[in-house]
């Protein structure tokens, strides 16, 4: 079973602080990490490989610095890692990114399953997975919380819906997106980190994957960001202190004034 896991490097939310004065994100020294949802995708890929054999190839589209995310994926059990990087990919929206990833996956070729995190924590769109599947002309299933292999030609999955779970069977190859419900990702082991340090990471550029210049980067992006702004920051309204009863009375009074309680 050859599995491709698509990941993205994002700024770590763990230490992002907001400047209380300006309400801006303070990005000094914010480290880049693997998108949290992609951690589950990597783990699931590795678990399937441990059961069914084959290999896990992790790919990412991004600047050269994204290589560190790929190395981390290797430390968590991926077999190979490929960086899809070219200046002409810059400014891509979800559609252009889907096209670029699908072109790279076609170039890589032999695969049975593609797993992605359900969305990236910076953009939060959840669009690249399904978009990539469409461009590869394979089925996709989002919000998967359980994967069962039925031989090497199909899978049965549980997909989370707002009111429960749908059970769906799909032929392979297929693309799945996953979140935290599916597994608990492993922590990179010492030996994994040593492997990651030594790993050779291939880079694919636009020419290699034969990408159409009109469909990549800013030119291939139907959406354009025209304005970016910081929403007004919330500040503390009223502090209620004192003994518990006094606080409770004060709160309920205010809630009832608002027509809530």
């Amino acid at each position: 079973m050859n599995i491709i896991v698509c990941i993205k490097q994002v700024p770590s939310m763990a230490n992002v602080q907001i400047d209380p004065e300006t309400g801006r994100l303070q990005r000094d020294g914010v480290e880049s990490v693997i998108n949290p949802f992609d951690e589950y995708a990597i783990e699931e890929g590795v678990r399937i490989r441990e059961k069914a054999g084959g290999k896990v190839i992790v790919i990412t589209m991004g600047p050269p610095q994204a290589e560190s995310a790929l190395r981390e994926a290797i430390s968590k059990g991926a077999d190979e890692a490929i960086l899809i990087s070219d200046k002409v990919f810059g400014g891509a929206d979800t559609l252009a990114t889907s096209y670029t990833l699908s072109s790279a996956i076609k170039f890589i070729g032999d695969y049975d399953l593609i797993i992605c995190g359900r969305q990236a924590s910076d953009g939060d769109t959840a669009q690249v997975g399904p978009g990539t599947a469409e461009m590869l002309n394979i089925p996709h299933i989002t919000y998967v919380k359980k994967i069962e292999l039925l031989g090497d030609k199909s899978i049965r999955v549980e997909r989370i819906m707002e009111d429960g779970c749908d059970l769906i069977e799909s032929p392979l190859p297929a693309l799945l997106t996953v979140g935290k419900e599916i597994n608990v990702p492993r922590i990179s082991s010492l030996k994994g980190k040593m492997l990651a340090k030594k790993a050779v990471i291939k880079t694919l550029d636009a020419a290699t994957i034969n990408a159409d210049a009109k469909r990549i980067g800013l030119n291939g992006s139907p959406t354009q960001v025209i304005k970016i702004f910081t929403p007004p920051q919330r500040t503390c309204g009223e502090k209620l202190t004192g003994d518990a009863k006094k606080i409770a009375v004060a709160l309920v009074k205010r809630l009832s004034e608002l027509g809530i309680a």
Partner: peptide
């Protein structure tokens, strides 16, 4: 089990016996 999976039991044991 987490210590084991992360190879933390291996730190001081020589490499020829599966250590770090």
């Amino acid at each position: 089990k987490e210590f084991a999976k992360a190879d933390l039991f291996a730190t001081y044991i020589p490499e020829e016996y599966g250590g770090f």
